[in-house]
Amino acid sequence: MLALLVAGCGNQDDDASEPAEELTWDDLLPADWQPEKLLEDFNVEDVADEDPRAAELMDKLQALWQQAPVVPELDGRRVRLPGFVVPVDLQAEKINAFLLVPYFGACIHVPPPPANQTVYVQTREGRPYVGALFDTVWVEGTMQVEQFDSDLGNAGYRIEQARVTPYEIKE
């Protein structure tokens, strides 16, 4: 019996000794970044999809979103962040890499979230995430301020060797 207890201790997360800082999505935005200023030139409610101004606005938004500034101070910090899973490989049964986004449906709708609201996540070696598209999860690991580009969207942050767990509110 003691052998089973000792063996079970080896399965604990090796980085549990360093607590993760719980972040919100607002923490990933620089304080001085104000993308709504772009919209001041447009009365969005008066712009229909077929209006040429809609295409102009979409182009400006996509350029702004791709170059969205990040918070350099987050680099190297151990963090915990909730969000929604958007697999990078939609054919995979087990997800080894995905985009973590702040709201349901992101990356499927156009435009996707800005780069500073998207985190590229790689799961721990041998521990793929087994779940569904747009599951809500907690991701824990060391944040890197690093650009990642995919067809689904651009990420301004990356977490490798991430611990991914189902979303539950901490009590």
Rank of each mutant, 00 (worst) to 15 (best):
Ala3Leu: 15
Leu5Pro: 05
Ala7Met: 13
Cys9Lys: 04
Asp13Met: 12
Asp14Val: 14
Asp15Trp: 06
Asp15Val: 09
Ala16Cys: 04
Glu18Met: 01
Glu18Phe: 10
Ala20Asn: 14
Thr24Arg: 10
Leu29Ala: 01
Pro30Arg: 02
Asp32Trp: 01
Pro35Cys: 10
Glu36Ile: 09
Lys37Gly: 00
Asn43Trp: 00
Ala48Tyr: 03
Ala48Phe: 07
Ala55Ile: 13
Leu57Val: 11
Asp59Lys: 09
Leu61Ala: 00
Gln62Arg: 14
Leu64His: 00
Leu64Gln: 15
Leu64Trp: 02
Pro69Asp: 12
Pro69Asn: 11
Val70His: 12
Gly76Val: 08
Val79Asn: 01
Pro82Trp: 13
Val85Leu: 06
Val86Asp: 06
Val88Arg: 06
Asp89Cys: 14
Leu90Asn: 09
Leu90Gln: 12
Ala92Phe: 03
Ile95Ser: 05
Asn96Gly: 14
Phe98Cys: 08
Leu99His: 11
Leu100Trp: 02
Leu100Gln: 13
Phe104Arg: 13
Gly105Met: 05
Ala106Gln: 14
Ile108Pro: 00
Ile108Ala: 11
His109Arg: 15
Ala115Met: 01
Thr118Asn: 06
Val119Lys: 05
Val119Arg: 00
Tyr120Trp: 15
Tyr120Met: 14
Val121Ser: 03
Gln122Lys: 15
Thr123Arg: 10
Tyr129His: 06
Val130Lys: 10
Val130Pro: 03
Phe134Trp: 07
Glu140Ala: 02
Met143Gly: 01
Gln144Cys: 07
Val145Asp: 10
Val145Ile: 05
Asp151Val: 03
Gln161Ala: 01
Ala162Tyr: 02
Thr165Gln: 06
Ile169Lys: 12
Ile169Ala: 12
